[in-house]
Nucleic acid binder design. Structure first.
Length: 828
RNA sequence: GCCCCGGUAGCCCAACGGCAGAGGCGAUGGUCUCAAACACCAUGCAGUGUGGGUUCGAAUCCCACCCGGGGCACCA
């Protein structure tokens, strides 16, 4: 493939040397540095950002796609006259580097920074218009110093705290995981089955922002992919309901349950407490304690995966105590079961088997009563085994009787509870606090010192950053506690408060903390007075366009939104949503399946670039499909892209008019198409319909080829105008060939800095249009008419047409629909 | 089970409620060639997943279903 473009030169049509062109323009761009963002520019500012990569090896096809798409937008904005901030960096803390370090007996930084250099070189080759002066790495002490600073600020505000609770534990990576990192009961990263451990860990109080994380989504919802918005809403999981207090014998405090159906309180026939909650252990009667403990043992052995199987039969144990229904005074048995979750709501529920399927399944398993209190017209759940959850008439429900509407029933029930002081309307969220501690080495150290007499002491700001020690190789082997705990020279310190012997917190932060604020730092990467310069951030504002993979639909995007809101509340920035618009690109697959080593279907980016050139690969990725769709590499044709680019390039050599020739008076048809293409391309880029934009450029190339060969000829100024337009439009996608064409057309570099071509509205007006005449909705004739024709004239023309008359065949015309100048429909 | 998104030609994909086809891949034929590759030219009978409905007119809007992808899921 590679040699095709250099051999047989005499017999081949003219082609350009892809490799030489790439080398040439890399040097020119290096020298001219056309993409540096000027903080002080008077131009309107735009911030374009693509998710920064983790440096594992070289770039792959997925990176190639996201960068190509992102670059189209950033380059387009630049041509439209905006001052564009378009930075790049690395999310460079993380486990792969640590595992490599153990394997190779080295420091994780070695692997990390070597890969960063590899990726940086690939990005340069890939022709991306980044402002390299703003490059950052989250593993640099200058960066993580501010991660630590933010942690301490969050802690001051009560938003970072430590508590002991059962946490997700990955036995393979030997670290805890956030809820978001557990997928179907397995570690999101390595796939190992996650177990539970009771550990004291650091959390960010994301729950305090649950409501705003939900409602602020509305601000960006129409510029974010639907599925991301939905995924975040699902994840936050807001529900409205009530807390209801049940007095329990032998306990001073009532037990509070959370329910979304307080209106069914009269149908409650038992209560269920999460078996693994402290409450269950506390409530259980002496007589039932052995049975309870046996049950607890049984469910602890079950993995999350088993627990998650929703079709599993219900299990549980009677705790041997009773609770009192606050509205009826009825005594209800209290059970413990694993179908009630300890960490959702209050960890206890009132069971209304008639109107909740899970409760009904449980009631049937243990022969507990089922009492219908809402008559929906469906069969009685006690008989059918199917709980009814819809609207209906309330029965046996005291003051609710007579109501027929669920919403009314719920609000009345809450009134009753509130009047009696035994319950209150409330809102509940599925979202949990963000567990941020990790028992690994290659991450940002938590800047806390544990002192036996002073407790948790923050590291004083002037001692930040708390830098990682020089551990390597076997020192980093996972052993269930952070490798830092064993580094005694590092961990043993004097307490900053009392000066006594103390220990550093030896955990590191989840790497998602690092990436929750990097986009803010890019506005002032060298700033030393804080994580970012608030003035610069005010200048640039929130990210106008974020581009990235949707595997982060919940994780990174939710965390970054949380950080932004907290910083807003701290008065450090003036927006509440970090990413105004989000473009989520699909995945590059091969032969219908995800690329993987085991399937042997991987496509190596470097090899593709060697074979077809950067431009052809970029064009292929942009043209393949709408950006959100997956691309199957087996369905696309980089060689086809390469052919097209050669065709486009060849045009630039055909132009014989001089640079600067006035196109006025050039071939009207070609000029019209050129200007329509410019207009459409702008609209298509703004709508992120890059594949269609490329198709339009292809059309223009085809039309220009025709004009040169069999039309107005190469000397016509319209040809120059068309070819210059092709170069400018292509510069968004294929910068190398665009520069080469631009230069060949007699212009100075770089085409990337040329303003977007002006559209002449006069050229958009068509000389004539084809009007379609339908009879009964079927096309019977076409008329060439003036675009300004009025309805009556068009109707008359249509009815006079011989083909139309033939189609009408003398039938009576009942109605004529006219949409001048394009359509007439005659109804008979 | 609930919630999103999508089904158009062999394939990837276009089409303000108005001619089903813009672009590409592949295929086929031709020009060039001793032959081939390259290049160039030409060739599109799918009626838009299925069934209803609204409309003068539906790929497009509405309803139901089927298929594919994604999210949530014992969350009370």
């Amino acid at each position: 493939m590679t040699q095709d473009r250099t051999t047989h030169a005499e017999t081949e049509a003219a082609t350009y040397d892809v490799v030489a062109t790439e080398e040439k323009w890399q040097r020119v761009w290096e020298e001219l540095d056309p993409f540096r963002a000027d903080d002080d520019s008077p131009r309107e500012k735009r911030y374009a950002l693509t998710m920064f990569p983790y440096p594992s090896g070289d770039l792959h096809m997925g990176h190639a796609e996201v960068f190509a798409l992102h670059d189209v937008i950033a380059r387009y904005w630049r041509m439209r006259g905006f001052e564009v901030l378009d930075p790049m960096g690395w999310d460079s803390f993380g486990l792969p580097a640590e595992n490599a370090a153990i394997r190779n007996d080295e420091h994780p930084a070695t692997y990390t920074y070597a890969n960063i250099e590899t990726q940086a070189a690939s990005m340069r080759r890939y022709g991306l218009a980044f402002d390299w002066s703003r490059r950052l790495h989250t593993s640099d002490p200058e960066y993580y110093r501010w991660t630590q600073w933010l942690f301490l600020k969050f802690r001051e505000r009560g938003l970072a705290y430590r508590r002991k609770s059962p946490v997700n534990w990955c036995p393979n990576d030997q670290t805890v995981l956030a809820n978001e990192q557990v997928v179907d009961g397995a570690c999101e990263r390595c796939g190992a089955v996650v177990t539970k451990r009771d550990l004291t860990q650091w959390y960010f109080k994301t729950t305090e922002y649950a409501e705003r994380l939900l409602t602020d989504l509305d601000q960006v919802a129409d510029r974010w992919p639907n599925r991301v918005v939905t995924a975040q809403r699902n994840w936050i999981g807001r529900s409205e309901g009530a807390h209801v207090d049940f007095a329990v014998e032998g306990r001073e405090q009532p037990v509070t349950v959370y329910t979304t159906r307080p209106d069914t309180l009269f149908g409650a026939t038992f209560m269920v407490v999460a078996a693994d909650a402290d409450l269950a252990a506390e409530l259980v009667s002496d007589a039932q304690r052995p049975a309870y403990e046996a049950y607890l043992e049984e469910i602890r052995r079950a993995s999350d995966i088993e627990r998650l199987a929703t079709d599993r039969p219900k299990s549980g144990v009677d705790l041997g105590v009773t609770a009192t229904n606050p509205l009826t005074g009825e005594r209800l048995p209290v059970w413990a079961s694993d179908y009630v979750l300890a960490d959702y709501g209050t960890g206890a529920i009132m069971a209304v088997p008639a109107h909740d399927q899970r409760d009904l399944d449980f009631a049937r398993a243990f022969d507990l009563p089922v009492r219908r209190v809402v008559d929906t017209g469906e069969p009685d759940p006690a008989e059918s085994g199917v709980a009814t959850s819809g609207d209906g008439a309330y029965v046996s429900s005291g003051e609710l009787d007579g109501l027929t509407d669920k919403a009314a029933g719920i609000s009345r029930a809450i009134e009753l509870l509130e009047e009696r002081g035994t319950g209150t309307g409330t809102v509940n969220y599925r979202l949990r606090d963000w567990l941020l501690s990790r028992q690994r080495f290659w991450g940002c150290p938590i800047p806390i010192i544990h002192c036996p007499s002073c407790g948790e002491v923050p590291v004083p700001e002037d001692q930040l950053p708390v830098e990682l020690p020089e551990l390597k190789g076997a020192d980093l082997k996972p052993r269930g506690v952070s490798p830092l705990a064993a580094a005694s020279e590092w961990v043993d310190v004097a307490c900053p408060t009392c000066g006594g012997a103390a220990k550093r917190d030896s955990d590191t932060m989840d790497t998602f903390v690092d990436s929750s604020w990097y986009f803010l730092r890019f506005t002032s990467p060298g700033y030393t007075e804080g994580p970012f310069d608030p003035e610069k951030l005010r200048e640039w504002g929130a990210v106008d366009q974020y581009v990235g993979g949707l595997e982060h639909a919940v994780l990174h995007l939710l965390y970054a939104r949380f950080f932004t809101k907290v910083l807003h509340d701290m008065g450090m920035l003036d927006f509440v949503e970090p990413f105004e618009a989000l473009l989520g690109q699909g995945v590059v697959v091969n032969q219908g399946r995800k690329m993987s080593k085991s399937l042997g279907n991987g496509v190596n980016l470097g090899e593709q670039l060697d074979a077809f050139g950067v431009d052809a690969v970029r064009l292929t990725l942009v043209f393949a499909s709408p950006p959100e769709d997956n691309i199957d590499w087996a369905d696309v044709s980089p060689s086809g892209s390469q052919k097209f680019l050669q065709r486009a390039w060849r045009l630039s050599g055909d132009v014989t008019s001089a640079a600067g020739t006035d196109p006025t008076g050039g071939d009207a048809t070609l000029r019209s198409q050129t200007h329509r293409t410019i207009r459409d391309a702008a609209e298509l880029v703004e709508g992120h319909r890059f594949n269609v934009m490329v198709a339009r450029v292809m059309e223009l190339v085809n039309a220009t080829r025709k004009a040169v060969d069999t039309g107005c000829g190469p000397a016509d100024p319209a040809v120059r105008e068309a070819v210059e337009t092709v170069a400018q439009l292509l510069s968004l996608v294929t910068p190398y060939v665009a520069e080469e064409m631009w230069e060949r057309l007699g212009h100075e570099p770089t085409v990337a800095q040329v303003a977007w071509p002006e559209v002449d509205p006069a050229l958009l007006v068509e000389q004539s249009v084809t009007a379609v005449v339908q009879v009964q909705g079927k096309v019977k004739a076409r008329l060439e008419v003036d675009p300004g024709i009025d309805g009556e004239a068009l109707e008359a023309l249509a009815l006079a047409d011989a083909d139309v008359q033939r189609a009408l065949d003398g039938r009576e015309v009942r109605k004529v629909v006219v949409r001048a100048p394009k359509l007439v429909n005659i109804v008979v």
